[in-house]
């Protein structure tokens, strides 16, 4: 007993009420260090993601894919990696990409995707024949309903104000049924759910989606009947990138955004779990000590 014991006990007590700034430092490091080292976490592709990948992979050359950017800057860290991966795959498959946005904030992100991925990595891809940015239109699900019937009623001009009738790839577009696949990126409303309910189901058009981890559980019920596949959060993005790497060896060894995000998340999760365990172990040590002490006192 004596001095040593009391000191030890206060240490346990002190650790139990550890300054939370220490936890903050650990979480900050858990996020930053993997980012700085470019560490990536490969995720085995699960069926819900693989079927999505295979659907695009199976599209014949020149198929029309509608990409709807239904998200904003706050969720971009999770969603953008999926967008990049799917845009890359579509470009490899030589699909025609039609980009639009149900969210006003999605408009900027469309431009960013074109500037950061499409232009530098696929210089042969030509605006107007291979891809087009149609921009944002108001109307939410109402917009989808109109597009299902008459596409050009809402999109008479593209994002930069050019008449769509003068754009070659818009020639045979009359309504949403002219597309081979619709992909919606978004977590909120309107988003994937609205595309399923107002375009996919009534028009019998395949719809795929990429969403935040938080909204994924609400959308799982639509797979596989109404959604061809669903990417949920960083995990979904990383799985898709894994599928992409397996199919296109030129990406082998490349550190992709979703895998990086996944690494940072996994390390932070481990750190948080460690703290939970640590706190509970200390709690049990202290409780057993308190018990033995009270028994001694009782004697």
């Amino acid at each position: 007993m004596g001095n040593g014991h009391t000191e030890h006990k206060t240490l346990v007590e002190r650790l139990q009420f550890i300054d939370r700034r220490i936890i903050f430092v650990f979480i900050g490091l858990a996020v930053v260090i993997p980012l700085l080292f470019g560490a990536v976490l490969k995720e085995e592709t699960t069926p819900i993601v693989q079927t999505f990948f295979d659907t695009i992979e199976g599209l014949p050359e020149g198929s029309r894919v509608l990409l709807s950017f239904d998200y904003g800057p706050t969720t971009a860290p999770e969603i953008q990696p999926m967008v990049d991966a799917i845009v890359r795959q579509c470009a490899h498959r030589k699909s025609k990409m039609y980009m639009m946005a149900l969210w006003a904030t999605g408009d900027n992100l469309t431009g960013e995707t074109i500037e950061k991925v499409l232009k530098p990595e696929f210089p042969d891809y030509k605006y107007g024949t291979d891809y087009i940015n149609l921009g944002y239109q108001t109307g939410n699900q109402g917009l989808i309903r109109v597009l299902l019937v008459d596409f050009k009623m809402m999109y008479a001009v593209d994002a930069s104000g050019t008449d769509v009738d003068s754009i070659p790839m818009m020639k045979n577009i009359r309504n949403l049924k002219n597309f081979d696949l619709i992909v919606s990126f978004g977590g909120g409303s309107p988003g994937i759910k609205e595309w399923v309910l107002y375009a996919g189901d009534p028009g019998k058009i395949p719809v795929g989606g990429g969403c935040t981890a938080v909204s994924a559980p609400l959308l799982y019920p639509y797979y596989p009947n109404q959604l061809i596949g669903l990417l949920g959060g960083a995990k979904g993005a990383a799985e898709y990138e894994n599928a992409l790497i397996n199919a296109y060896p030129e990406y082998k060894g490349r550190k992709m955004a979703g895998m990086k995000l996944m690494m940072s998340q996994a390390v932070s999760h481990v750190v948080i779990m460690f703290f939970i365990l640590f706190g509970n172990i200390l709690y049990f040590i202290q409780r057993s000590r308190d018990k033995s002490r009270s028994m001694e006192a009782g004697r």
């Binding site: 980012l35 860290p77 940072s264 999760h269």
Partner: peptide, 20 residues
């Protein structure tokens, strides 16, 4: 537990901005 993941990715986004 489920929400932790989404919250971390927000921080990753900010850190990517700062360090990248």
């Amino acid at each position: 537990g489920y929400t932790v993941m989404a919250r971390i990715s927000l921080l990753v986004g900010r850190m990517q901005f700062l360090f990248g």
